[in-house]
């Protein structure tokens, strides 16, 4: 799941080398923190958060397999 977000984020930004993801498992929850270059923030969030929402949707679909809840934080 971490790689999924990492992969998508890298494909969307201008500076893929600055994309970093951290994953935290807590019980049934999976938290992923995504960090990108300052100027790429808008690209992973998208208009009205559409891109971020789409990533979250895919993430939760991916987590469905393991019956887990997910959370994606985009860090500034």
């Amino acid at each position: 799941m971490e790689e999924l977000i990492n992969y998508i984020a890298k494909a969307l930004v201008d500076k893929p080398e600055e994309v970093k993801t951290v994953i935290n498992h807590e019980e049934d929850n999976v938290n992923i923190e995504l960090t990108v270059a300052q100027e790429d923030l808008g690209k992973v969030i998208g208009k009205q958060g559409r891109t971020a929402r789409a990533m979250r949707t895919l993430l939760s679909a991916a987590a469905e397999k393991e019956h887990k809840k997910t959370r994606l934080d985009i860090l500034e």
Partner: peptide, 10 residues
């Protein structure tokens, strides 16, 4: 739709 949207973006 999310998949389609992200794929388009990429």
């Amino acid at each position: 739709d999310s998949l389609q949207y992200l794929l388009r973006k990429i």
